[in-house]
Simulated scan of single mutants.
Amino acid sequence: MTERPETLVIGAGQAGLSTAYHLQARGREALVVDASDRVGDTWRRHYDSLRLFTPRRIIGLPGSPFPGDRKSVPTKDEVADYLAAYAARHGLAVRTGVTVERVVRHDDGFRADTTDGPIHADHVVVATGKAWHPRVPSFASELGDDIVQLHSADYQRPSQLSAGRVLVVGAAVSGGDIAVETSRTHPTTLCGRVTGHMPFRSNGPLTPLIPFIGNRLLSMRSPLGRRYRAAERDHGQPLPVELVRSIRGIPDDRLEWTDDRVVGVQDGLPMTASGRVLDVANVIWCTGYRHDYTWIEPLVTDDAGWPEQVDGAATGSPGLFFVGLPFQSAYGSGFLYGVGRDAAKVAAQIDRGV
């Protein structure tokens, strides 16, 4: 049978659940579907040691503060469990194990073709974030067969690695954090340009400023925010100052950090832009993800392939919305502390019949 909820929300992460919460608060029906088996599984799949850098006191979703010591930072599994409890506590209609393969405009709304059959809806909210397609350079296939290669999406723990030096490619937050961990068991080289860092500790006395900076100062409504958005989308997020200090505090013979980029392969080994050939036994690609929205028809995207949208409403496609895009309306859009603001804007537009 074909279902027809008023709004179909694709993705049961923080973006999708926040949107369903705000729609429910306005008395509007929403069905949330997610390809994972459980709510929060996207977080559970991250590497074992992952902890947030921001404390619980600023990361709760609308209607539910994050439990536990408000000054402590949660693990990735605690975030996953929080999301599952959030959906249950607010009675959100969530269906897991459902993959959306295509969304097309149909009659006076949309049809989503899913692994559980077609779903028709008046509105569709895409809350899949970056779309999570790991990106590695084309020359990765030229590395020697004896080199262990993992993308950060597949890295879980150092025991996955063989004996010998580890090369971590990409010095954004995940790359820096993973390099610190691998340096405890393997000599490690971290290659990547410094993306900048926060001017103060993310879990310190100035922590309350983070939502103001991320949601208001660095927003699309300010010239500073618009300039910062281009840099953030192209080069990644700035590093927490705590992470920078951790990296620099490790002896060079355990962790070498260089901005010399990995650009190719020579004799089966990675080679940098300066011509240096790195004798390594493992490579962890912390090179981000590619976004793919070709499964949505029609959709207007910009030159970089991001959906064109204003306050979450897709350009040229009434009834189609986005929540959780990196820097959707502000720097905080992709984070737990900021996604609720964008979700509230989208729910308000749906309630008004935009």
Rank of each mutant, 00 (worst) to 15 (best):
P67W: 01
G60M: 02
S64T: 15
R51G: 09
S64I: 00
L52D: 04
I58L: 10
F53C: 00
D41K: 06
S64V: 01
R56L: 01
I59W: 05
L52M: 13
R45I: 11
T42E: 12
W43Q: 09
L52S: 03
R51A: 08
W43C: 07
G60H: 05
S49G: 07
K71N: 15
D48I: 01
I58F: 03
L50P: 05
L52H: 04
R45V: 12
D41F: 08
P62V: 09
G63K: 09
F66H: 07
I58D: 04
L50Y: 03
L61F: 09
P67I: 02
P62D: 14
G68S: 11
D41G: 11
G63R: 07
S72W: 00
T54C: 11
I59D: 06
G60Q: 04
L61S: 12
P65C: 05
L52G: 03
T54W: 00
L52C: 03
R45A: 14
D69S: 13
P67L: 01
G60C: 06
D48Y: 10
R56A: 08
R56W: 02
H46S: 12
G40P: 13
T42H: 15
W43G: 11
F53P: 00
P55N: 10
D69Q: 12
P65Q: 04
P55F: 06
P65K: 01
R57T: 06
P62W: 07
P55C: 06
R70P: 14
R44Y: 07
D48V: 13
K71R: 14
R57M: 13
R44C: 09
P67M: 02
D69M: 05
R70M: 11
L50G: 04
F66G: 06
I59P: 04
T54E: 09
P55R: 03
I59V: 15
V39F: 09
R44E: 10
R57V: 03
I59T: 13
L52W: 03
G63Y: 10
P65S: 12
G40S: 11
G60N: 07
P67K: 03
R56D: 07
T54I: 06
S49Y: 12
G68Y: 06
R51D: 04
G40D: 12
P62S: 07
D69R: 13
H46F: 14
S64G: 00
G60D: 08
